[in-house]
Amino acid sequence: MGATLATLAAVAAAGCAAAGTAGAAAVPAGCDPSGATVHWSTPVRQPRLTRVDLFASDAGGTGTVVLDEPITASVAGVTAPDGWVAALAASLSTATGSTVRTGPVRLPDGGYSMLGGAQDDPSIPESLLYQGVETITADFTVDCAPPVTGTFTSWTTTGLGTVACAQADEPAEPLGRLARRHCPRTPAPHPPALDLAPSPTVPPPGALTAT
C-alpha cells in the first residue's frame, strides 16, 4: 500500500509540473529577436498598482501595507531563453515609440506628504499612498524557422500619489481610482448635478405664428 501511495504521489507531482509548462513552445536554435524581424499586435496598456500603504490619517506617520505586488517583465506562450526579455522590450519600444522598461520599478527620490484640505466626511480619517505603473502587453511573432509566437508584458511609466478616503469623488488618475478601492470606508457619492438649463418653450395649441 505504501509503495502504491508513493507511486501515485510521484505521478501527481509530475502532472503538476507538466501543467505548469503546458502550452510553452520551445525556441528553435539560433532564433533571437534582436537579429530577426518581430511583428507586434496592437499593444494593450493598463494601469496597475504595485504598492498601496494605508495611513490612519492624512497627517502621515507609519502606514500599513495593504498591497505589495511588484511587476516583472514576462514572456508567455514560449520558453524564452535568457536575453529575450530585453530584446523584446527593445523591439516593442521601437514599434510603439514608448520606452518599454524591464528592470525593477524605481520612483523619483524625494519626500512625499499625505493629502490635506477639505474633506467630504471628517469622520473618515484614513488616507492612502499608492505606487503603480502603466503596463503594456502585446502578442509577437519572431521571423524564425519556424516562426515563434508569444505574448510579452512589461511596463512603461510609473505613478505615485495619495488618496484621501474622506473624499466623495473618485480621483481623476486611473491609479488613484484603483487605489481608492483599498479605503476601508468612503463617503456616499455626491448626487448628480441638476440640469438648470431652460426647457424649450412650446407654444400652446392654436397659437399664431408670425410670418
Rank of each mutant, 00 (worst) to 15 (best):
M1V: 14
A3K: 09
G15Q: 14
A18M: 07
A19E: 06
G20S: 14
T21E: 06
A25S: 07
V27K: 13
P28N: 05
C31N: 02
D32P: 03
P33K: 09
S34L: 10
S34K: 05
V38C: 12
H39C: 03
W40L: 11
P43N: 05
V44E: 14
V44I: 13
L49K: 09
L49N: 01
R51H: 07
L54F: 11
L54S: 04
F55I: 06
S57V: 02
D58M: 06
G61K: 04
G61M: 06
T62L: 00
G63D: 11
V65H: 01
D68V: 11
E69Y: 07
P70C: 06
A73Y: 09
S74W: 14
A76S: 05
G77V: 00
G77E: 04
V78N: 06
D82S: 06
G83L: 12
A90F: 08
A90G: 15
S91M: 04
S91V: 13
S91Y: 01
S91E: 10
T94W: 04
S98V: 15
T102I: 06
G103I: 01
V105G: 02
R106P: 06
L107E: 04
P108Y: 09
L115V: 10
G117P: 02
D120N: 08
D121F: 15
I124E: 06
P125Q: 08
P125E: 11
L129F: 09
Y130S: 00
Q131H: 13
G132W: 07
T135W: 12
T135I: 04
T135P: 08
A138M: 05
V142A: 14
C144F: 11
P146D: 07
T153I: 09
W155M: 10
G161D: 10
G161R: 03
G161C: 09
A164G: 08
C165H: 00
Q167P: 00
P171W: 10
A172D: 13
A172V: 05
A172Q: 03
G176D: 09
G176N: 03
L178C: 14
L178Q: 15
R180W: 04
H182D: 01
C183G: 12
R185L: 12
R185T: 12
P187K: 14
H190S: 14
P192M: 12
L196E: 15
P200Y: 03
T201Y: 10
P203Y: 01
P204D: 12
P204A: 11
T209I: 14
